[in-house]
């Protein structure tokens, strides 16, 4: 681990100024991913700027019924919040399906979406990786691809985003509020994460020194009937092979509206708008759900590799979406 300086600034503005002024500086939130990377040599900052106590750590109800979640709220507090559990069960479930009790106590709402891929080659500095070292090559292609992308990958990177919370946020039309060197702005959550393209080193649309201060969840009745379905190799404490965040509105056996996002399959939480479109007006049936999945998965491409590659993710995702929607449609929350 390279030595670094540590700064505990007085407020968020100073934190932003400090990082923005130093290309070698990083923010430290809950630390669950950054400290990991410091040890692995994946991150070698010269300055670490601590955020503890600087960011809002409450959940505020806005006039329009939206919830404003402070970036300093821990994952466990968010998951346990009664308003979240009632109005956005998909979000609470996504949070609770991630990591462990200890990690959820540490991880923050602002930090969680910014965690980096768990691609084993990205995390191993002795293997080439375009995300870690642009231009060095992608070791995952042709390697162990069980946990890699089937949607939106590029020839430069097939990594997936590991967050569960982010998948729910993407489905819920959340908005990310940031404070950067140029001031405050709001970004639709679905625009926060990038696909790898030819610049896999960039995970998000944030500028250097730009800090997430809150995430807004707009009020939406549809989210009351929502769920997160995570499929993984262990029953707990494991990253998703695939996951589905879904909200659905059914009336008289017909799907009126749907919100769907996938996890574990792309470089970003994957908002499944084609699937949503296919569902609107369709009968609430397995056939509709499968057709919706197929609409979204037409461009899916498995990554061949050791141990059979990851082609299984395509039928698995179709089946998981179908099961999730079937469960949601069959259950009346009122």
């Amino acid at each position: 681990m390279k030595p670094f300086d540590y700064l505990a600034p007085a407020d968020a503005a100073e934190a932003v100024r400090s990082v923005a002024a130093n290309p070698d500086a990083v923010f430290l939130g809950g630390g669950t991913n950054l400290v990991d990377h410091l040890k692995l040599g994946v991150a070698e900052p010269g300055l670490v700027v601590g955020l503890a106590g600087l960011l809002p750590s409450g959940i505020e109800e806005l006039d329009d019924g939206a919830l404003r979640i402070g970036a300093g709220v821990s994952n466990s507090d968010l998951a346990a919040d009664p308003r979240v559990r009632e109005r956005f069960p998909v979000l609470s479930q996504a949070l609770l399906s991630g990591a462990s009790g200890q990690l959820r106590n540490m991880a923050t709402v602002g930090g969680n979406p910014l965690q980096r891929t768990r691609c084993v080659y990205f995390q191993d500095v002795t293997t080439p990786c375009n995300k870690r070292e642009p231009g060095s090559g992608c070791s995952a292609i042709g390697g162990w691809t069980r946990h890699h992308a089937v949607l939106g990958a590029s020839e430069h990177c097939i990594a997936v985003h590991p967050s569960d919370m982010a998948v729910a946020m993407a489905a819920l039309d959340a908005r990310v509020r940031t404070l950067g060197p140029a001031g405050e702005r709001a970004i639709p959550f679905v625009e926060l994460h990038r696909l790898p393209g030819d610049a896999p080193e960039r995970d998000t649309a944030l500028e250097h020194g730009e800090l997430i201060t809150a995430i807004d969840l707009p009020a939406q009745p549809i989210a009351r009937r929502s769920a997160y379905h995570k499929v993984r190799d262990r029953a707990s404490y494991a990253f998703a092979l695939v996951s589905v965040a879904a909200a659905i509105e059914v009336e008289g056996g017909v799907i009126r509206d749907a919100r769907i996002a996938f996890g574990g399959v792309a470089h970003a939480p994957w908002r499944a708008r084609r699937a949503e479109e296919a569902l609107r007006g369709a009968p609430a049936s397995d056939g509709s759900y499968r057709a919706a999945a197929d609409a979204e998965l037409t461009d899916a491409r498995p990554a061949e590799g050791l141990d059979g590659g990851n082609a299984f993710k395509i039928p698995l995702l179709r089946r998981t979406l179908t099961a999730t929607l079937r469960d949601l449609a069959g259950e009346d929350p009122r």
């Binding site: 768990r118 080659y121 191993d124 162990w144 190799d233 262990r234 029953a235 707990s236 494991a238």
Partner: peptide, 16 residues
């Protein structure tokens, strides 16, 4: 071995 840690090399967790 590329999955050379306890996140990559799964051993049963309590919930299993």
């Amino acid at each position: 071995v590329v999955n050379h840690d306890l996140a990559g090399y799964h051993i049963t967790a309590n919930a299993d």
